[in-house]
Computed example of a mutant assay.
Amino acid sequence: MSKKRFYTIYISVTCITFLMTIFPIFEIANRAEPIIIGLPFNFFWVVMWIVITFLAVLTLYFKDPDVDEGWGEE
Protein backbone atom coordinates (compact mmCIF):
# COMPACT_ATOMS: atom_id res chain seq x y z
CA MET A 1 0.00 0.00 0.00
CA SER A 2 1.41 3.39 -0.91
CA LYS A 3 1.99 6.04 1.75
CA LYS A 4 -0.45 8.45 0.13
CA ARG A 5 -3.25 5.89 0.06
CA PHE A 6 -2.49 4.82 3.64
CA TYR A 7 -2.64 8.40 4.92
CA THR A 8 -5.86 9.05 3.01
CA ILE A 9 -7.49 5.99 4.59
CA TYR A 10 -6.12 6.89 8.04
CA ILE A 11 -7.44 10.46 7.90
CA SER A 12 -10.81 9.30 6.55
CA VAL A 13 -11.28 6.67 9.27
CA THR A 14 -10.31 8.99 12.12
CA CYS A 15 -12.45 11.86 10.81
CA ILE A 16 -15.52 9.69 10.27
CA THR A 17 -15.31 8.13 13.72
CA PHE A 18 -14.71 11.56 15.29
CA LEU A 19 -17.68 13.10 13.47
CA MET A 20 -19.97 10.36 14.76
CA THR A 21 -19.52 11.65 18.33
CA ILE A 22 -20.11 15.38 17.78
CA PHE A 23 -23.05 17.57 16.80
CA PRO A 24 -25.02 17.33 14.47
CA ILE A 25 -24.48 13.63 13.74
CA PHE A 26 -24.68 12.80 17.44
CA GLU A 27 -28.34 13.86 17.30
CA ILE A 28 -29.06 10.42 15.78
CA ALA A 29 -28.19 8.86 19.13
CA ASN A 30 -29.20 11.63 21.52
CA ARG A 31 -31.87 9.78 23.47
CA ALA A 32 -32.01 7.83 26.71
CA GLU A 33 -33.92 4.79 25.47
CA PRO A 34 -33.10 1.93 24.86
CA ILE A 35 -30.78 0.88 27.66
CA ILE A 36 -27.86 -1.15 26.23
CA ILE A 37 -25.38 -2.89 28.56
CA GLY A 38 -26.75 -0.77 31.39
CA LEU A 39 -26.02 2.51 29.59
CA PRO A 40 -28.42 5.00 28.07
CA PHE A 41 -28.23 4.87 24.29
CA ASN A 42 -26.30 8.14 23.91
CA PHE A 43 -23.53 6.96 26.31
CA PHE A 44 -23.42 3.61 24.54
CA TRP A 45 -23.10 5.42 21.19
CA VAL A 46 -20.03 7.37 22.36
CA VAL A 47 -18.38 4.32 23.96
CA MET A 48 -19.07 2.25 20.84
CA TRP A 49 -17.40 4.82 18.58
CA ILE A 50 -14.40 5.09 20.90
CA VAL A 51 -13.92 1.32 20.67
CA ILE A 52 -14.42 1.37 16.88
CA THR A 53 -11.85 4.17 16.57
CA PHE A 54 -9.35 2.24 18.69
CA LEU A 55 -9.77 -0.93 16.62
CA ALA A 56 -9.55 0.96 13.32
CA VAL A 57 -6.37 2.81 14.34
CA LEU A 58 -4.85 -0.41 15.69
CA THR A 59 -5.60 -2.17 12.40
CA LEU A 60 -4.14 0.70 10.42
CA TYR A 61 -1.03 0.66 12.62
CA PHE A 62 -0.30 -2.92 11.56
CA LYS A 63 -0.92 -1.98 7.90
CA ASP A 64 1.38 1.08 8.12
CA PRO A 65 4.11 0.89 5.48
CA ASP A 66 6.53 2.82 7.75
CA VAL A 67 6.42 0.33 10.65
CA ASP A 68 9.48 -1.91 10.80
CA GLU A 69 8.86 -5.62 10.82
CA GLY A 70 11.50 -6.39 13.45
CA TRP A 71 10.31 -5.42 16.92
CA GLY A 72 13.00 -4.83 19.50
CA GLU A 73 15.86 -5.02 17.03
CA GLU A 74 18.36 -2.20 17.18
Rank of each mutant, 00 (worst) to 15 (best):
K3A: 13
I16A: 13
I16Q: 02
F23S: 15
F44C: 01
V46T: 12
I52K: 02
K3P: 02
I22F: 13
T53S: 15
I37K: 04
G38S: 01
F54I: 11
P24S: 04
M1F: 02
T14Y: 05
Y7E: 11
L60E: 05
G72M: 04
I28D: 06
L55A: 13
W45A: 07
N42Q: 12
P65A: 10
E33W: 07
L55E: 07
P34G: 05
A56R: 00
T59K: 09
F23P: 09
F26G: 00
W45P: 07
Y10Q: 06
T17N: 14
L39P: 00
V47H: 02
T17S: 12
M1V: 03
K63D: 00
F18I: 09
I28F: 15
M20N: 10
F54W: 15
F44K: 02
T8P: 00
T53I: 08
A56P: 00
M48G: 15
F18E: 08
I28N: 05
I35D: 10
R5T: 08
F43T: 05
V51W: 07
N42W: 12
G72E: 04
I9H: 01
K63G: 00
R5H: 09
D64R: 01
R31M: 14
I16C: 11
W45T: 05
I36H: 03
T14D: 07
M20I: 04
M1S: 11
W71T: 10
L39W: 05
D68M: 06
F43Y: 11
I9L: 14
A56D: 01
P65E: 07
P40T: 02
I35N: 09
E27P: 00
F44D: 03
F43D: 10
W49L: 06
T14V: 12
I25R: 04
N42I: 03
R5V: 11
